[in-house]
Structure formats: C-alpha cells, structure tokens
Design a protein around this nucleic acid. Structure first.
Lengths: 190, 190
DNA sequence: CGGAATCTTGAAAGTGTTCAAATCAAGTGG
DNA sequence: CCACTTGATTTGAACACTTTCAAGATTCCG
C-alpha cells in the first residue's frame, strides 16, 4: 500500500489520515508469472495499480497471435478504461510478466472513493491527463517510425524493459514478429 | 459557448449560474480553413474545444511529409496534452480543415477554473478517462488491422469524416500514402 | 538429464511505398 | 462565364520493408 500512498502524494496534497482511508478501498493481490488478472470476454470489474512486478496487456488476433499493447511496472496503472467505465466485457488479457503485487479497486469502490474523497478526482484527472499525453506521443511514434526505428527508440527510451521482458514479448509490443526482431538485433551486434 | 455549456452538462451536474461563470474562462476564436491554431516549435499555451467545424493535428516527418494523428469535430477537445501540461514547445501543428469556431483556454485559466470550480475536476477527469479509453482502442486497431483494414474500419465507424475531409488527409490519418488509398478504393468500387 | 520454451537463420511471398506522369476538380481573375 | 492555374486524385512499374514458413540452435526449468 505504501507504493500507492507515495504515488498519490506525488500528485496531490493529502493528509496521512485521509491517505490511510483512501488505500482501504483497494485490495491486495498476488499474481504469479504468466497468470492472468483478467481475460478476454470477462466483465471488467477492476483497475490495477502495480506495486511490484510487471504486467502486460494483450489481445489475440484472428490468426491466434498475441499482440501486446501495454506494459506496466512499479507505480503504473493498468486497465482497460472503456470496459471498466461501462462495466462491460474486455477484449484484452492482463497478465503478469513477472511475479507481481497488485492493488485492485472495483468500479463500485472507485465511485465511492471519488465521492468520499473529492481530492481523488484531481489525482485521477492528473493520472488520466498523463496517460492520455503518453498515448498521444505513442501514436506519434507509431506514425513516425518504421518497425526497426521503433525498436531502437524503445531500446533507448525504456531500457529497463529489455532487461525484464523476453524478446518475443518485446516483438509483440513493437508490432512485429520475433524473427524480425532477431534480424534487427543481428544487424546491430554493437 | 452554448455548445460547451451543453457538453459540460452532459458529464456533470452544475447550475446555470455556475455554468455561466465557467464559460467565461474561455475565449472564442474564428479559424478559417487551412489556418493554424498552433505550429510545431511554439509554446503550447491553450487547449481547444471545437464548437463548430473540424480540426486536425499533424506533424511533419523527416521526409517533409505530414502525418495527421487526430481529427476533432463539434464538441471534441483538441490538444497536445503533454506540451500544455508543461507549457513546453509542441511537436505538432493544429489546423482547421474547415472554417471553425473554437473555444480556447490558457494554462493559467485552466488551473484557475479547476480551483474555483472543483466540479470541473470531475468533468476533466471524465473527459480524459474517455480520451484515454479511445486511445487504447485506437492502439488496438493499429496493432490489429492492416492499412487496408484500417480504411474499411474507419469508413464504417466514422463515415462523417469521409464526407468532410479530403482523401489525402484521410490517407495521412490512416498512416499511408494517397496513392495506396486510391488503390484500395479502386478495389471496392461498390 | 530431458523436454519445453525461446531465439536464430534463410528463402519466398506479401504488403505498402516511391516516383513520374496523366487525369480530374476547383477556385480565381479577367 | 470562360480560361487558366493550382490542387487533388489516379495509374502503373520498380522497389523496400516486414512476414511467413520450416528448420536448427540455444536456453531454461523441473
């Protein structure tokens, strides 16, 4: 819970007492490597905060191939926002890449939390502003770079993932095949 | 201003009096076709609400080609969130595709508005939630579909744009060349 | 040690781009 | 209202980037 509490304090001013109340809306989950928090077709009842470990979000296309759309590590939020907002079925899987400690909050508790603690409106406004901003830049990169350039950019900007995530998931995230990643790496034996 | 007022009321409960105060934080702009609201390299001082017309956001890549990353029509917000948050230079241009009526708010007024009218925290939290959700789905489509499929999907989901936006901008938005769009269209003379 | 999962290799096939030129459409000034 | 100029769309051939498939090499884990 301390990781979340600390994260909230980075964004808004809130007393220790209120913070103690806030974190009680969350429940703690342990998820071991390769286990799913939610799978395609299920009603999306929670959003997740990573206090330890690394999650990925992916879907399976009509050829049966997994495409990873997001990673989340410590202090990142992970969710299917739209499915959560509407309490509808998700098209995604959320899976642990490493053993994880997760804080989860249900839709009901989310609404209650925002009602009882209006300063959390500001916290989530800031979180979503930031997440939206990151997505706008991500779209730009997807439009600007070739697959090979995406790899070099990812490698330069987020080297921690290369340490913690197997190659075939990196390829899945960058939108190409493991074979092609292998080829790119061969060219840059540096 | 009515368009914005109406939009706010769709998301939060707010009295007519407060609404009247809220809209005063915005200034009204007329932007004629092909004119820019902001260009690459400028400090991003505003976010924009489209009350009439159609905007696009684009950048220019190293080959000098424009890539359109977003469109916005009536009642949509348009912004470079990150540059706005940090009052930094933007990498984007925001341009009118048609003659537009725009409501703009500065960073200072945005902060003031949120401070004076806390219910606007909720409004923007909901706006960003939704925008973030839309982006998550957009990323999924970009990962899931070929360029040709993206066109068919766009055509099916947002036909109003095909009416209002020239083909070369559609191509620019879908991430391919006008020539290729032409080829796709030829195959589907239906 | 053995088996499964991951990573690499290379050739053939596909998807989308580039370039140059032709056609079509639209707005402007006379 | 026509003629002209510019902007937008189409065509086709050659090329580049990325995938597919099938196989082999390597690493990880029980």
């Amino acid at each position: 819970m301390e990781v979340l509490a600390h994260h909230i304090q980075k964004f808004i001013q809130v007393s220790e007492e209120e913070l103690a109340e806030i974190v009680q809306y969350f429940k703690r989950l342990h998820v071991s490597k390769k286990k799913n928090l939610i799978v395609e077709g299920e009603i999306c009842k929670h959003i997740y905060f990573v206090s330890k470990g690394l999650l990925r979000k992916f879907f399976i296309n009509d050829k049966g191939i997994e495409r990873t759309t997001e990673f989340a590590l410590e202090s990142w939020w992970m969710m299917d926002v739209l499915a959560f907002k509407h309490t509808s079925t998700t098209e995604f899987h959320i899976q642990a890449v490493e053993d994880c400690e997760i804080l989860a909050i249900t839709g009901e508790n989310y609404k209650l939390l925002l009602k009882q603690h209006p300063s959390m409106e500001q916290y989530f406004r800031l979180i979503f502003e930031k997440a939206y901003g990151a997505m706008q830049m991500r779209i730009k990169f997807l439009y600007d770079f070739s697959r090979e350039e995406l790899y070099h950019h990812f490698r330069a900007q987020q080297p921690e993932f290369l340490q913690r995530v197997p190659q075939y998931l990196i390829a899945s995230y960058l939108g190409f095949t493991p074979e092609y990643l292998s080829e790119i790496r061969k060219k840059n034996i540096s």
